[in-house]
Structure formats: structure tokens, C-alpha cells
Computed example of a mutant assay.
Amino acid sequence: MEEVLVPIAVVGMLFIGLPWLIFHYVVRLKSAASLTAEDERLLDDMHEMARRLDDRLQTIERIMTAENPNWRQLAADPASIGIEDRHTVRRLNP
């Protein structure tokens, strides 16, 4: 009786167990590699937020340019117009 059970168990493991194990992990890898609907929604929300922030920044730059066309040069070199470093002001006025 034992002589018959061992080959049947081996054949069962080879033709049923091994393919099941392989397909199980193939399906797991495929599902982990794709984005879920929630992930896609989150990416869309972040893209929309980035677009709105870019629009706001462009609006602020337009307003700044309308008020003072040289604001970019002033922002690049604050020492040229006498704006002091905040750390220097703190040391002078404790």
C-alpha cells in the first residue's frame, strides 16, 4: 500500500502543487506591479494641485512685474539695494 501512495503523492505535487505555487506568485507579482484605482486618483489629485500652484505662481509673478519690473534683479541681489541679512539685524538689535 505504501508503495503506491508515494508515487501518487509525488505526481500530485508535481502536476498540481507546483503549478499552483507558480501561478499563485505570478498573479501576486502582476497585481503588485499595477496601480490601484486609489493610487491613480491620488496621482491625478496631486497633478491637479501642482497645476494650480503653478498657475498661482505665474499670477504672483505677473503682479510683481506689474508693480516693479526690476523685482527679479532685486531678489537675486538684495545687498545691492541695502537689504540686510536677518541674522545681521538680530545681532545688532538683541
Rank of each mutant, 00 (worst) to 15 (best):
G12V: 05
R86H: 07
K30W: 15
R91F: 12
R86I: 15
M49L: 14
L18M: 15
H24E: 11
M1G: 07
W20E: 01
G17V: 04
E38V: 12
L57F: 12
T59I: 04
R72Y: 07
R86S: 03
R52L: 13
E2C: 07
R56M: 13
E67G: 03
R86E: 04
A9G: 13
V4Y: 02
E61Q: 08
E38Q: 10
L43W: 10
N68A: 11
G82R: 00
I8K: 05
H24S: 08
P78E: 06
I63A: 09
S31V: 11
L43E: 07
I81F: 11
R72S: 08
R90V: 00
F15V: 02
H24K: 12
L42K: 03
D77P: 08
V6R: 07
I60P: 01
P69D: 07
S31H: 09
I16Q: 10
H47P: 01
D44L: 13
L53H: 00
R56A: 11
L21I: 08
D55M: 09
I8C: 04
I16R: 10
G17C: 07
I22K: 11
R52P: 05
D77G: 02
L5R: 05
E2N: 15
V27F: 13
E40N: 03
L21W: 12
H87K: 14
F23N: 04
V10Q: 00
I81P: 03
I81C: 04
L21R: 08
F23Y: 12
E40K: 10
R52M: 15
E84R: 15
D44C: 06
N93Y: 05
A76K: 03
Q58P: 06
D77N: 09
I83T: 04
T36R: 01
E3S: 03
A76V: 01
Y25N: 11
R90K: 15
D44W: 15
H24V: 01
D45F: 13
N70Q: 14
E2K: 04
L14E: 02
I81W: 10
P94W: 09
H47I: 02
V4F: 03
D55S: 06
V10T: 02
V4I: 12
D55F: 12
P78V: 12
D77C: 06
A66H: 14
N70F: 13
G82W: 00
H87M: 13
T59K: 14
Q73P: 05
P78R: 13
L57V: 09
L5W: 01
P69A: 15
Q58R: 07
K30R: 14
P7T: 00
A76N: 07
T59G: 15
Q58L: 09
F23D: 01
R56Q: 12
G12Q: 04
T65I: 01
P78S: 13
A66K: 14
F15W: 01
A75D: 07
P69W: 02
K30T: 04
K30V: 15
R41L: 12
T65G: 05
E84F: 09
A75E: 11
I16S: 09
A9L: 02
L18Y: 05
L14N: 01
E48S: 06
A32H: 08
D77F: 03
R51N: 06
R51F: 06
A9T: 08
R28D: 13
N70S: 12
I16Y: 06
